[in-house]
């Protein structure tokens, strides 16, 4: 865990340094970048609150025994829950990493985590716009193929992570 923490700090330092370089080359690009960062941050804060509540509730109610009973392995119910969860979840992807890591510690397989993360690519609110660009048939087929791909990837990750 110490290694992971120091990696995070080095990454933050690299990003700050990157922004410093942008500032040296173009003040306007730096201002645009920072404005966008603030905009993203403001959008993220409410989601963060939801994620923290969910994490607290999960920590309280979802015990390792529960995970073992309902979600571990390749049971159909677990896959369906994580497919639906991925599609319905909101906010930036990285907001979900701590919750998934917590569940992993309690026995959730890496395959289901990857299945959840893959299905986050399917966003119901954006589907009408995708239909407007590419047509209903294309979006319907793409969505179905992506769900199948998420399961295939999950099974693959389960295999590779246990090696």
């Amino acid at each position: 865990m110490g290694k992971r923490k120091s990696f995070g700090w080095w990454f933050l330092l690299a990003v700050i340094l990157g922004n410093g370089i942008v500032f040296l080359f173009s003040h306007s690009a730096f201002t645009t970048s920072i404005n966008l960062f603030v905009k993203i941050l403001l959008r993220v804060i409410p989601v963060l609150a939801i994620v923290f509540v969910l994490m607290t509730l999960t920590n309280y109610f979802i015990t390792p025994k529960f995970i073992k009973k309902h979600l571990k392995g390749s049971k159909l119910k677990g896959w369906l829950i994580f497919i639906a969860g991925g599609i319905l979840s909101t906010g930036p992807i990285y907001m979900w990493y701590p919750l998934l890591a917590e569940l992993n510690k309690k026995g959730l397989s890496f395959g289901l985590i990857s299945c959840f993360l893959y299905n986050r690519a399917i966003k119901i609110p954006w589907l009408p716009l995708a239909v407007a660009y590419f047509g209903g048939a294309y979006v319907a087929v793409l969505t179905a193929v992506m769900i199948v791909a998420s399961i295939a990837q999950g099974l693959l990750i389960n295999k590779l992570m246990t090696k």
Partner: peptide, 14 residues
């Protein structure tokens, strides 16, 4: 971020 929280091997494979 993914590597730091979920592990480098998992993040890379995914």
């Amino acid at each position: 971020t993914e590597a730091a929280i979920l592990g480098r091997r998992f993040a890379l494979l995914r």
